[in-house]
């Protein structure tokens, strides 16, 4: 895809013992710089929104939104090419956010309902795209995206949509936190949970729309879910979750782009940059997980008191913050004062 001629003339090799140019030079090429900007924007936005996905266990709903945006992408793409992607996806995303909010509130068997919405909307997309002539390559483009082919106008769209998603969450920040940490208290304080839930689900849908154009429909979910999961392994402080998530996503995005660039230039290997980014992100997660398990083991060995009373049952994954009663009281008090 790349030829070496794009690079070589403007970059004399540096004299420093560690060649940092390896990590920074690729981004002097315009399309690489755009790819990096896209990934960084997405990292910041999904780090902030992702905190609430994690705290409220919305991973499955997010997956549902990801799949539900797909028919919108297809219809938009079939109607008017790459320009149609954003409008189509926006309509489908907002519709799906409303539908899934209602479906998930229906209590009994709600996860099966999400599964049906997810599969149904995805198959609508598949059926439409399968009537196109060269549908395999189109399908691949829609599912796995092309972070390297992001155009300047697409980048602007991604930034706008991402900013709107973040603003939605930041405006309702207190309510979102209150609902996530103390749903009963939030309702008792007179807040209706439905509008708060709809706002959050719309923000997730917007991010999915923004990310779908760059990373592809299926890989966006990784950015929404994995960085915050890494942050939760590393720290207990709530306010550190978003910054750490952003840092890990940005790191993975940057390393993924650099790796795919050099693999292509030096070895002629065409590795899809989007999937490389996700693989690196999950490698970071694996390292954090192993580190976390190691630290826990050392701690329990030092304490030598098994804390069986907080053992997970496996059936109901309990939020750690929920168990920490004092932290919850502190937060509730703070909310009541603030409200």
């Amino acid at each position: 895809m790349w030829t070496a001629t794009i690079l070589s003339p403007s970059h004399p090799s540096t004299d420093s013992p560690v060649d940092l140019g390896f990590f920074f030079d690729p981004f002097s090429v315009p399309f690489m710089a755009r790819a990096l900007t896209t990934v960084l924007v997405l990292a910041v936005a999904s780090g902030i929104v992702g905190v609430f996905i994690n705290l409220r266990n919305l991973e499955f709903i997010s997956d549902g939104l990801v799949h539900a945006v797909f028919p919108g992408l297809v219809v938009g793409f079939v109607a008017s090419g790459t320009d149609g992607l954003l409008p189509g996806a926006l309509v489908a995303g907002v519709l799906a956010a409303l539908l899934l909010t209602v479906a998930s509130r229906r209590g009994v068997g709600s996860d099966a309902a999400i599964a049906v919405v997810l599969a149904g909307s995805f198959s609508i997309g598949i059926v439409i795209v399968s009537r196109e002539t060269n549908y395999v390559s189109q399908l691949e483009q829609l599912l796995f995206g092309g972070v390297l082919t992001v155009t300047p106008s697409q980048l602007t769209q991604i930034i706008i949509v991402g900013v709107v998603a973040v603003v939605l969450v930041v405006i309702t920040w207190r309510r979102q936190l209150f609902l996530a940490l103390d749903p009963v208290g939030s309702r008792a304080a007179g807040y209706r949970s439905l509008p708060t839930e709809i706002v959050l689900n719309c923000a997730i849908a917007l991010l999915v729309v923004a990310g779908s154009q760059a990373l592809g429909n299926l890989l966006v979910l990784a950015l929404l879910v994995v960085p915050v999961a890494i942050a939760r392994l590393l720290v207990r402080r709530l306010m550190l979750l978003a910054p750490l998530a952003i840092i890990s996503a940005a790191l993975a995005g940057w390393l993924g782009l650099v790796t795919s660039f050099h693999a292509s230039i030096s070895y002629g290997i065409t590795a899809s940059p989007g999937s490389l980014i996700v693989i690196i992100l999950i490698t970071l997660y694996a390292v954090a997980l192993l580190g976390h398990l190691l630290v826990e083991r050392i701690r329990t060995a030092r304490r030598a008191v098994p804390h069986t009373c907080f053992e997970h049952t496996g059936q109901h994954p309990v939020l750690d913050l929920d168990q920490d009663v004092s932290a919850r009281r502190r937060w509730s008090a703070r909310f009541r004062r603030a409200v």
Binding site: N57, E59, L221, A222, S275, I279, L319
Partner: peptide
């Protein structure tokens, strides 16, 4: 702890696709 089954499914799912 602090991960749970939803996170587990999310991580494995995206890992598989990537």
């Amino acid at each position: 702890d602090r991960q749970g089954s939803q996170v587990a499914s999310g991580v494995v799912l995206t890992f598989g696709f990537a």
